[in-house]
């Protein structure tokens, strides 16, 4: 692993490892690799890693850390343990096959009430919006905001659309939306201002399953347009998951 990272204390029970200050797929690979190194070789008192766009936070149970005397602070000791673990396997990182998760989406109609609006604003037909939205893979930089919600890379400017001025009070789970040049999928029912262009029948948040999220940071999403019949068929199956 390159040494282009720095440590910051996130209070007295977590360390933030910051890579660069701009978002890129290469930097995110460093984030994912660091989280994996630490999770595969946890130190006593380690709680969890939360990876994000350009950084990863490592949480620990302060009272379970036995700090050797040569370190002034528990934080310094944790940093040294993290440094030891972040030994890199560049070859492995480069050869890692991207993990692509297909998300079937029923665009437009009752599942995507704002598809026409997004098309109009961008002077496109709804079919063109669907083709552009589903025409590329999106890296998942982080899961956050809500359980199972993927923060993914930007959509092409040709379909970017500002948020609604007045947010909807209820957005059904599985709704696929656009806000500016971001796209996302709502895992749970929540209020929100995104322009809704479609809906997936897959459950992104599955509290009974292990892991409880369909998606994880570092994977890629590929949207696949489906018709209503297929939506209903998949939905019936996914209710049992």
């Amino acid at each position: 692993m390159s040494r282009s990272y720095s440590f910051f204390p996130l209070g007295d029970s977590a360390v933030l490892i910051q890579f660069e200050s701009w978002v890129s797929e290469n930097i995110h690979r460093e984030v994912t690799a660091a989280a994996r190194c630490i999770e595969e070789n946890p130190f006593p008192g380690f709680v969890e890693c939360i990876p994000s766009f350009t950084s990863v936070a490592i949480y620990y149970e302060f009272h379970r850390i036995n700090k050797p005397d040569e370190f002034d602070t528990v934080y310094a000791y944790i940093c040294s343990m993290l440094e030891q673990r972040m030994v890199a396997d560049e070859a492995e990182k480069a050869s890692a096959v991207p993990d692509v998760v297909e998300i079937p989406v029923c665009y437009g109609g009752k599942h995507g009430p704002d598809l026409e609006l997004v098309a109009d604003k961008n002077r496109l037909t709804p079919e063109e919006v669907i083709r552009i939205h589903s025409g590329q893979d999106y890296l998942i930089y982080a899961i956050g905001f809500a359980p199972g919600f993927p923060y993914v890379g930007g959509i092409p400017d040709t379909i970017a659309t500002p948020r609604k001025k007045t947010p909807r009070l209820r957005i059904p789970p599985g709704s696929v939306g656009i806000a500016g040049n971001q796209t996302g999928i709502y895992p749970i029912e929540t209020p929100g201002g995104w322009q809704l262009i479609g809906r997936t029948p897959l459950a992104l948040f599955r509290p009974g399953a292990q892991p409880p999220s369909l998606l994880k940071a570092g994977q890629y999403i590929r949207f696949r347009p489906i018709e209503t019949e297929e939506y209903e068929r998949i939905r019936e199956v996914s209710l049992w998951v």
Partner: peptide, 10 residues
């Protein structure tokens, strides 16, 4: 609830 922060779980 710890260990699930990476999945967006509070």
């Amino acid at each position: 609830r710890y260990g699930y922060g990476r999945y967006g779980i509070s």
